[in-house]
Amino acid sequence: MEKKDEILDHGQDYDGIKEYDNPLPRWFLLMFYGSILFSFAYMAYYTAKTWSIADASGRSANLAWSGARVAAEVREAESGHANFVPPEGDALLSFVRSPGNISRGEALFKANCVACHGENGQGVVGPNLTDRFWIHGGKPEEVLLSIAQGWPGNGMPAWGASQGPEKVHWLTAYVMSLRGRSVSNPKAPQGIEE
């Protein structure tokens, strides 16, 4: 057992400051050695892991781990929606009237469309979606087409590829539900009246 609180005699005078030479607390040493052990283990695990991923995917190892992680995360999340069968005709009509689909579409609209069509669809750069005028037609199939394929030449991006079929349908449901809604400062009508 080492002595506690004994003044260390270096024989110096540090402006009157004295020093003990107490032993380091045991919990402190455990913490330190523990963190070093953890670090070695982590790096070994990491190295083994990235090598195997990089081999399997042919991807360079530099971001293999991050890349594989996101792929898995997205795959798992989307798995429930893989078997979406696009509704047609009457099925489409009832699909776009379903309140559930409308509210799903609303979330997507708020994220992607408000910049050009306004917070409530009243129109900004893109046309007003609440009036009865349509440039490319206001039937569900036509609106679906506008959204999925876009009108890139006129400033309307295509959303089919980035959002996938199910989300484009939800968006259509929401856009259809906007018609006739009263909004403040709507953009002047464009296109032909239904």
Partner: peptide
């Protein structure tokens, strides 16, 4: 240590 007028706890 100046203000507390106490020795440093541990040199090592």
């Amino acid at each position: 240590p100046k203000a507390a007028e106490r020795p440093i706890y541990s040199y090592r």
